[in-house]
Nucleic acid binder design. Structure first.
Lengths: 139, 139
DNA sequence: AAACAAACACAACTTTGTTGCATTTAAAAA
DNA sequence: TTTTTAAATGCAACAAAGTTGTGTTTGTTT
């Protein structure tokens, strides 16, 4: 219900390496497109509980390793942060694309310029475009 | 589960005016910020079933009267379309702001420029910035 | 090796939105 | 005006996505 994370203000807690976490990070690394929690649960080869997946993803987001976009149906899609995510105070100002046909969401290498918002404190952003992707258009 | 709408390709069906619909549109008109289905259900004075509210909102979106943004928690926030929504093929290329404190989402009068996406068919977009709004910053 | 807390599993739950079907009702047709 | 028709609604049951609580496991530090 509360997928927002306050960044890295909360002191970096001690972190432990587990098989499950490594497996999830590897999945995200290998994936060209974003992954939903469900995608991960259905793809991962080690046995991991769904609650664990959700909490893990929250931790990754909090740590700035991963970012997510919510699609038009309200589902969260996760992707590893790249170097470009880290520019300008960890704001993810690149565009995402959600395909109505294959339902996948991908990060696009397109940065959007956002003017300063007077009197607002901007912590993060999600830019989503919706339509039909390259692959699905060809079919 | 499927909040996307294919625009107006489906022939404009006969539309009927009902008290409920008028009431919802009036609520949206009066509201400075976007409203969730729940907001509407809790605010509206005439008795309307929640299913009706959801279907109604879908119809309004399909008709281009209303647009919505999904917040970081995956919840849909609806707003009346203004004249500015109708520019450039009914794409809603203005920015929205979600406040982490009051949890409200508002339309901002800020248009974002999006370059053409080669080989992609863009039907719509959702631009969301997240942080602390003007009012909540003052408290 | 012992201690500690991060990470996990499991079950129950919440929230948001959907589906199917019967009923009502706005508006067109008779 | 009355009849007809399908758009709009109501209701109940359901579904998907994510969360909470609690007890257990297990990395890491001491």
């Amino acid at each position: 219900m509360y997928r927002i994370v306050i960044g890295l203000e909360n002191k970096m807690a001690v972190v432990r390496n587990t098989k499950a976490q490594e497996a999830v990070l590897e999945l995200l690394q290998r994936s060209k497109k974003t992954l939903t929690a469900d995608d991960i649960i259905n793809t991962i080869d080690v046995s991991v509980n769904k609650t664990t997946i959700y909490r893990m993803l929250d931790r990754f987001v909090a740590a700035g390793k991963v970012h997510f976009v919510t699609d038009t149906a309200g589902k969260a899609h996760y992707a590893l942060c790249t170097s470009s995510c880290l520019q300008s105070h960890s704001l993810h100002n690149h565009l995402h694309f959600q395909c109505k046909i294959c339902n996948q969401v991908e990060c696009l290498p397109v940065k959007l310029e956002v003017p300063e918002l007077e009197n607002y404190e901007v912590h993060d952003m999600q830019f989503l475009s919706v339509g039909i992707c390259f692959k699905c258009k060809q079919v």
